[in-house]
Amino acid sequence: MLTNEIKVGLAVLLSAVVIFFGVRFLSGQSLFGGGYEVVAVFEDAQGLTSGAIVRLNGVRVGDVQEVRLGPNAREVFVTLGIDGGVDIPRGSTIQTSGISALGEVAVEITPPSGADAGRPLVAGDTLRAVSTPDIFDLIAGESNSLTARADTALIGAVNTFTTLDEILQNSGGDIEAVLAQLRFLTQATVTLVTEEQGRIDRTLASLEDAAANASAVSDRVGRNVEDLSVVVGNDVVATSGTVRALAETNADSVTAAVNNLSSALRRADEQLVELRALTQNLASLSADLDSTLNSPDGTLGLLLNDPSLYYNANAAAAALQQILQDLQAEPGRYLRELDGVVRVF
């Protein structure tokens, strides 16, 4: 029979049981034990709180039990309650995911790649976490690598100019003579060149053909001199005259080539200036990002919604690098044109 005493006792006992299991359930402990705890050491907990979800390959396997700072606040010790029956392979990487600003930071565990995972973790084991920046840190990190890329571009530029310088130095008197000649020719035709700007491209294209022709003619001339030195002497003179005339005619193109080279150099110079400005911009961008991240009323959303900023910076750096890479890969591209000229004389 249910006496009052029995009813009351039953009710109180039952509610004590409900409190016990309810609190265990809601605080994320497994209801009937069997789970175990491992400790993860983070450099930055990214706003992780107790009760946050622990996922293994994206599957929920437990909850964060406790988050506390280590000695000297160097590290964060995060106690993870892992459900019973879940094995976490040794060597798994562990990291936070999610955005603390939106209230959902979770712990992600990824098993090591490769079949041999080793024996699973047991209670009390400690994992060292891979420090993953959250999305804002990712943006900031991206801007850093942007700066790094601009740096390599600069180094590339320096290399290019060094190579260019070496080439010019090594060619010694020839080049100097050519350059002297060129200076003369330039002076002689400077007006013409400026006036004939429209024809430059076409002339440039025919330059190599002309040089090749000249070379072939010279060869033929050599053979003819051996065979018919006297007979064809006049011819040779005439041919030389033709060649000279040809060279004279093509002086425009040579000048254009030199002009091209100098404008290329000028462009590289301009790019360097731009590069410097860009680097400064990037530096200030990084600073902006930093302050935005640190400021409580930061316009994070704005930054998030404005990827063009990032892409512009990236594209600029990439374009610059392309130019400099071209220069580095073929430093003698314009010298080849000069070579043709040299061989004419």
Binding site: I19, S27, G28, A52
Partner: peptide
Amino acid sequence: WEGARLFFRPYDVFFGL
């Protein structure tokens, strides 16, 4: 339940009691 567990503190229950 996931949401309920996320910010649950046993103190809430103590306070309610």
